[in-house]
Design a protein around this nucleic acid. Structure first.
Lengths: 331, 331
DNA sequence: CTGTTAGCGCATTCAT
DNA sequence: ATGAATGCGCTAACAG
């Protein structure tokens, strides 16, 4: 593979001049400039990233650590973050913690070894020692959607209270009083916030405060299904279910159908925090709080880029919208 | 950040000894070994990846270029590849071409700059000049699920002919004669193969050979919906639809419901290449060829690792299974 | 088994 | 504006 030395030789200039042309830093004569560029093109020269990083002590790489790349919310977020980062001249190194603190730790180590310039992080909630070390090492950091209490870094994430508000208003409008709420782990900030907002708002919206209607899973389908089953097993009547994230809703719906049968299950209305493709096809169709993963990814990257440039990054709550798919009018 | 020099100084040994201990290459006395390890731990030493890569002229990074990370097939594949790579001591740099040849090109450049050790590639079909350059540069390469004709690299991918066979058998068993086939781009190998297998097998399975029932999209929901609409507009009767990949099926179902209404649409049975979470909830439930993304990702990485180690990698077709969700018996 | 040394490819400083 | 020289942090070759 051609090095900058080869390019310089071919262009008949010194290594320094070639470097200056190719990194576009300092002034160079149009003459040597064109010769270097031509030589580089002819040789198919592509700068050696590791060497460049070593010398400049920056990599132009951002780390993005998400909890579960198979969750559509995060894959959309990752995609948007990647696009935005490209736009600013950064490459994104994507890592998937698989909702597991140990793997998160391992990737944080990898990131540190790669000497990433900044970190976009959507944490699980548990703070390990490595994580603490990373967070205090001065690496520019931005939280995406989820945060860790006590850590001073800007958060770019959904406005959970507002989103839950939409769902509550919809539930009231649809005339539901007995609503099962399937939440997420309290250790994850979004889980805690959504639950808190629901608890705080349900009475005001005429929804039963019977806590037997409350349960929580792990923000994955399996845990949510189990939580749904527990609620069913308590024998309390409910006419609607509220799933606290997309996978939770999926798991809850699956449990409803398995335990009650499709017929019975179709008499229960479902509303979800996070909108999924197929909700329009469910019967009855599932209404949902739209959680704008793209904006979160994009704004998060912008925040981190600001941090990297020495500017302030205040963090931001991204507004949700609501997709009402209920058939007919008030029930 | 602590360097190996700091570690050596703290341990009271030379730089060389510290390096030997930390990279575990050569023999070292237990004495100095423990002192170096202790010093490294105390300083929180993490080796500088770029420096190490520069010196060793390898990065222990594999590039994974997928067509669309928001496609569940690829996010599962990426996840599996990542896990397997970790297991072999490699980090995966994931890039998303967004089904766009230009972006694919840009990422190939980035990969080259980062000096990745090997490439896992799921191509769009179009071969640009950069791509050609990459492919002939001698970079160890493995195709995942999709291939490019004429390029000599092992393919780890679905057995498309077998998968289509499952679907055909099911269609016949369900008594369908008039089947709409919504394919993918012929430029993508999976699109071409699945279409070819369908055309070759339909007659044998008692399925109409009326080509007005055939159309193709772009393997994305939007293009598939348009293709479905075109078939509907031709006014030929059909009792079943076969979608050539997951997103295609999604788009087709959406088009059916929009154009025919939920009532009419529910009289048409749908079968899909690729299984999606929600197919069990559709009405009628959608049966599907299960395309084992995890195995493909895992085996692909193993193949690339073999290549990197100088071993042979023959490539492999991964068998599919079929999920029959049809209600009741023969129609 | 260990210390010393060279050099990976590049950006940058110091002269000119 | 340019050439020569330096060193980023590390591994590997060499000498002992």
């Amino acid at each position: 593979m051609a090095t900058i030395k080869d390019v310089a030789a071919r262009a008949g200039v010194s290594l320094g001049t070639a470097s200056r042309v190719l990194s576009g830093s300092s002034q160079t004569s149009p003459e040597s400039r064109s010769r270097v560029l031509a030589a580089a093109a002819e040789l198919g020269y592509i700068a050696n990233g590791p060497a460049r990083s070593l010398r400049r002590s920056r990599t132009d790489v951002l780390g993005l650590l998400v909890s579960d790349i198979r969750n559509p919310f995060f894959s959309e977020l990752a995609h948007a973050a990647e696009q935005e980062a490209r736009h600013h001249g950064y490459t994104v190194l994507l890592a998937n913690a698989n909702e597991d603190a140990e793997q998160a730790d391992a990737y944080l180590r990898t990131f540190a070894a790669q000497r990433i310039d900044g970190l976009l992080f959507s944490p699980q909630g548990t703070v390990s020692s490595h994580l603490a070390a990373t967070l205090t090492s001065g690496l520019p950091l931005v939280f995406l959607n989820r945060t860790i209490e006590g850590v001073d870094a800007p958060l770019y994430g959904t406005d959970n209270a507002e989103g839950v508000g939409h769902a509550l208003a919809w539930l009231r409008q649809r005339g539901h009083r007995d609503v099962a709420f399937i939440g997420g782990p309290d250790t994850i900030s979004t889980g805690a916030e959504r639950r808190a907002a629901y608890l705080a708002g349900r009475e005001k919206h005429g929804i039963s405060t019977d806590d037997r209607l409350l349960d929580a899973g792990d923000f994955l389908a399996s845990g949510a299904a189990e939580a749904m089953c527990r609620v069913i097993d308590r024998g309390v009547r409910f006419t609607a279910v509220f799933g606290a994230n997309g996978l939770t809703t999926f798991g809850a719906v699956r449990a409803l159908r398995e335990r009650l049968g499709a017929e019975q299950a179709s008499r229960i209305e479902v509303v979800s925090f996070d909108d999924l493709d197929w909700f329009e096809f469910a019967s009855p169709p599932i209404s949902a709080v739209r959680n704008d993963a793209s904006s979160i990814g994009r704004l998060g990257v912008r925040g981190l880029v600001d941090l990297l440039a020495g500017r302030a990054a205040p963090g931001q709550r991204i507004a949700t919208s609501f997709v009402d798919r209920a058939r007919g009018g008030i029930r």
